[in-house]
Every structure is written in C-alpha cells, then in structure tokens.
Design a protein around this nucleic acid. Structure first.
Lengths: 255, 255
DNA sequence: CCTATATTGTATCACTTTGATACAATAATA
DNA sequence: TATTATTGTATCAAAGTGATACAATATAGG
C-alpha cells in the first residue's frame, strides 16, 4: 500500500532546496491546502497519510496555491498529483488559522538535517493558514505517489491514527464530523464504494462513518425508501448463504 | 440605523493612503476575513452591510489578519471594531478563493478617485482569499461604526439585498444556508433574540431563517419537546388577546 | 444428493413523531 | 359585557422508526 520513494539523498536534498527557492515566485505566501482523503476497505473507514521524511510522524497530503489558481482547483490539483485520480469528490470543510499550529518544529528540524542550515530559505518559516478539504475516493483505483519530503504513503484506520504533525489530528476529527452530516444530507457515500455493492457492504460503510451499529432490516428499509438505489441482478458471492442483490447509486437525484 | 462618517475629504484621503502604506507590515498578505452579520427585527432576517465610499455598492464588513493573530481572533476583532459588541456568536463557514473575485474594479477605481493614482500602493491589487464567518447578534445592542472607505452602515432584508461587490452575494447565500442547518442542530437562534421572548416571536424567527411557514401548534409542541426553553411568567403585551408566556433559552444543554 | 448453516428479503407489530384540526381560555377593546 | 384576536392544549390520522419473526436460498459438509 505504501510506496517507497527511492531518490538518492543528493537528489532529495537538491529537490528540497529547489522547491524552497522557487516556491515564493509560484505560490501564494502564508496559505496552504490540506486534504483528508477518506477510503473504505475491510469494513473500515481509512485516511491516507504521508510519512514525513524518516520521522515517525505523518501529515495530511497538502500543498500550496498558485498565484493565479482558484482555491478549489488547487485542492483538486494536489489530490490528482498524489492519487492519480481525475474525478474526485471534494468538499471544503474548514480553514485552520491558529498561530500555534506553526510552532511545530519537527518538520523544520528534519528538513534542515537533510539540506543543511546554510541552504535554508525562509518559505517554511512562514505562518500558514490552511484551507482544508476532504475527499472521498474508491481506493481500489488509487495509486498514491510519494514526493520530496515524504517517504511513505499509508492508509490508517480513522480510529488508529499515528502521530501527526501540526494540528492535523484536529483537522481529521473535523473532517469526519463533517462527513457524517454530509452523508445524511447529500448521499455522498457512493464515492467511497465501487460501482456496485450489496446492502450489507453499504451498511458496513455507514457503520464505519457513524461509528455505530444499525439494525439490518431497518437500515435496508430506510435506504430503499430514499429512491437512490437501483437494484441489479443477484450477486454470486460464493458465500454459503442466500445471494444478496447488487445495487448501484442512481446519479441525478443528488449532487 | 446608518451612520454617516463625517471626516473631511482631506482626512479620508490621508487615512486611506496611510492604511495602504502600513498594511503590508501589519497584516498577512493575500488573506482577508469577511463577516455576514445576521440580525432579526420586524419579523425579518437582516444582514448588516457597508456602503462602499459613495457608490451604490455595498460590501460585507471585513478586514485583515494580523501577522501574529489567530484567525478566529481576527474575525472577532473585526466584529468588535464594527459593532462594539463583546460576546458575539461567530461561526466560520466558508473560504472563498476564486481568482475571479479579485477582478472587481469598482472598489479600486473609487479608491483611486479619492486618493489619486499617484498615491496608490499595491495592497489592494493583490489577489485575496477570504475566510468567511457569520455572526448572530441581538441587534438592539449594536452600535455600528463606519470607517475609512465606508460611508454608511445599513441593515438589509436578506431577501432584498443591494448591489454587492466581489462575490459577497454568493457568500451571503452560503451563510444563510449554513445558518439553516446550524439552527436545527445547535439551537443558536437565541443569539438573535433578546433575553426573553414569546413562542410567537420565536416562530417568526424560524420562519425568517427557513423562509417558510410553520403550523403554530406543531411548532410550539416541537420546540417545547427540545427542553431548552424555560417558561417564565406571563407577558403583558397590551395586545387585545390572551397574554402569551415568555420564554428564555436555558444555556448549558446546547453550545 | 440431502441437510445444516449463514445470511438475505420481506412482513408485521408496537411505539413515536408529525401534520392537521378543534376548542376552550383570556387580555384588551368597544 | 360581549367581541376580537390570539394563545395553550388536546386529539385524530398518517407517516416513520425500532424490534422481531420468518421464509428463501447459495454453499458446505457429510
């Protein structure tokens, strides 16, 4: 699932140095975008995180906003660069701007270890305000791309997160909370599923998002009453029980 | 309700020039805060807007973020400067960052008319990303303060807005939409009312926010069932009918 | 091949919530 | 003192929800 970046130290060093040199001319100062990428597998809700250099710390995939780029386009571009996906369900949910979040020093120290203090340019010394988006993706289609700074891409259970830099743990909490209300209102869940699915799989998704159990028969009645599911022919699961129907979300009624 | 600013042209000109000179040293570049201030009177939901210079255009009260200031604190400070209120219910709901919003030229042209092109500094030529908050206030307590640039402070019915600069009309729409979902979930409505109120007044508020009528008896049953209202003694309205009870929101159960 | 097992699809019952209507109570007015 | 406008409460039917029962059926194991 993770994906080791295998540039040599020379290339990494040069890459970081070049980024810090060129960034001020390309990107808006003091502004960043962070994305909480949700996926769903093994009946668990997962978040895609990046390991920061060779530390035990992880961060949200993020990036900066080009000077002539729309905010939403920046978020989309950052996601495409990281996941390789084209059509991504994306929702802005929060902008984080406490000054304390810039006090984090682990990232700076690690970067300085790699490139040497003399090469330090002040791009990362800025105080950043970060606009946060969450994305829902069918993770069977993702090919995460690591990048300079980040040595590993990894899915984490939303309940078993690693150590995170900055206020990224808070941001993930807010993203989940927002996903919960959106799932009710806008039926965005299908973005996390493959094209077709059984009622059981859908229920597992809802249980993972809301972190609670639902009574099977009532859940089924409820979702069918929404008239957003199209029932297909039966599934041949190979499991030792009655084969469940397959469903597909009907687009058009929502979004 | 409005409040004419009566500085002479000389002072206005000097004020604007000075602001543009000093702003880059004080505030984060490319970032602003806009606030949608909701009030409730005459059974109507109102928004507080500022007339831009002597144009027919209005804008949302806004401002900039000091370099070492938390984002939420900036929003609070801007509101306090404008309304004179200390404890304000404030909710961040959206960050607006399309490049097209900076294409607005009315504001720039008007400012240049006042101070002369020679005096122009490039603070307002920047592309701004704006973090938007909405505020709920008991407007009987407000004393709006005008400021350089802005000649008049005025309440507008949320359904009868004047011409607005930038994308401020879109921002107000989003604010209302967010207020509607928050009112359901978090019972924030009391921030728009005076300390005590009748069930009829409360219903009018809900009707103004949701822009639809409710059946009186069912509305009453519903709100009483939430256990957030404390019933006081009767009200002596002087109206020619049975005197309604007065209620107060009980704090603690919400927020 | 036949039966056991696990899980699915549907029905049903009791209970709660919601929409709509009826009606008695009452403060000011004429 | 009766009238008027509005309020507080009750009630009935319809819709929605939680809990349970049960028949259907694809595979596994003998």
């Amino acid at each position: 699932m993770g994906n080791q970046h295998e540039g040599d130290v020379r290339g990494l060093k040069e890459g970081i140095r070049e980024f810090m040199e060129t960034a001020p001319a390309i990107y808006m100062p003091g502004l960043s975008v962070d994305t909480v990428i949700f996926g769903f597998h093994n009946d668990k809700l997962k978040v895609l995180l990046l390991r920061f250099a060779n530390t035990p710390y992880f961060v949200l995939p993020g990036g900066f906003i080009k000077k002539e780029e729309n905010l939403d386009d920046a978020a989309l571009r950052i996601l495409q660069e990281r996941t390789g996906l084209q059509d991504i369900y994306l929702e802005q949910f929060y902008t984080s701007g406490n000054t304390s979040r810039s006090k984090e020093t682990v990232a700076k120290e690690e970067l300085q270890k790699i490139i040497g203090k003399a090469q330090w340019s002040n791009w990362f010394d800025q105080r950043f305000v970060s606009v946060c988006y969450y994305a829902l993706i069918d993770d069977t289609k993702v090919k995460p791309e690591t990048e300079i700074f980040f040595t590993e891409f990894k899915w984490f259970d939303v309940n078993k997160l690693p150590k995170l830099l900055y206020d990224h743990d808070l941001i993930i909490k807010k993203a989940l909370s927002r996903l919960q209300s959106d799932l009710d209102k806008k039926l965005v869940g299908f973005n996390l599923m493959s094209e077709t699915f059984t009622m059981g799989q859908l229920q597992k998704l809802y249980e993972a998002v809301y972190q609670k159990k639902f009574v099977r028969t009532n859940f089924q009645r409820k979702l069918l009453s929404l008239n957003v599911l199209e029932r297909l022919e039966k599934q041949y699961t190979g499991k030792a029980h009655k084969a469940p129907f397959l469903y597909r979300f009907v687009t058009g009624s929502n979004e």
